[in-house]
Amino acid sequence: MAAAVSPALQKLTRPLEVIGSGVIDGLDDLGAVLMFFFRVMTRMFRPPFRMHVLFTQLEFVGVGSLFIVLLTGVFTGAVFTLQSVDAFARFSAQSLVGATVTLALARELAPVLTALMVAGRVGSAMATELGTMRVTEQIDAMEVMAVDPLGYLVAPRVFAGAFMVPLLTMLFIMVGVAGSYLVAVIFSGIDEGAYMARIERWLDPSDLFQGLSKALVFGTVVALIGCYKGFHAAGGARGVGQATTGAVVIGSIAIFVLNYFLTALWL
């Protein structure tokens, strides 16, 4: 068939084919991840519940990420305030700095940055660990022992991601606001009363819910992609490396893309 098409026409159709097959592959992957998610969800809410495995993961995701989340939180709040103080001074609205920074932290910065940190630290680790287990046949061994690896390995990890990222996001907001307060009130001399009053006046619980609901989605997705990549790794050390890279890259992209849609949904 292809021979019948003239070379000129082929020049036209070739890019379309490449784009088309790229889109189809992408949709295939998306479909596969969704199937995987569905299968994991069915494991999450039925016995056996392995509390010791779950707690290990909660600790790894939550406690393990505490330090970097606190650190990035303080500095994000601080630097954003530094810029805002400078910018708002141009139209004498410094008292709005607190409310602006808090709003931005709660809705956008905290969930997105927390999830990105977790994607780098936790998503990658999950992909590496499960990928190594896959290529060394440890997952096969588990199956052979009549233990469902989706239930034993994946479900607790995804749950830990979904549960811990919102908590970490909370912390991020708190230390972010603290960092902001420090820069605004202590370093830049903005009146404390006005700073706090504006936060109270302009901030709504729904802002917090927006951020936390995003965090829930991001946490689930980051852990899910890390596990999916690891679980389907093939081809030795190189395959594990690719799974790890894929988990971080796709996880991070997914955060940004989903963030757009979730924001649009909330506004």
Binding site: E129, T132, M133, T136, E137, Q138, D140, A141, M142, E143, V144, M145, A146, V147, D148, L150
Partner: peptide
């Protein structure tokens, strides 16, 4: 399907060529 396979495998044991021990 997975569930039925898990059930079937309860009567099996397998020694892997490369041992496949849980390294953690």
């Amino acid at each position: 399907k997975q569930d039925a396979l898990v059930e079937m495998r309860k009567s099996f044991g397998m020694v892997f060529q490369q041992a496949a021990l849980f390294d953690s």
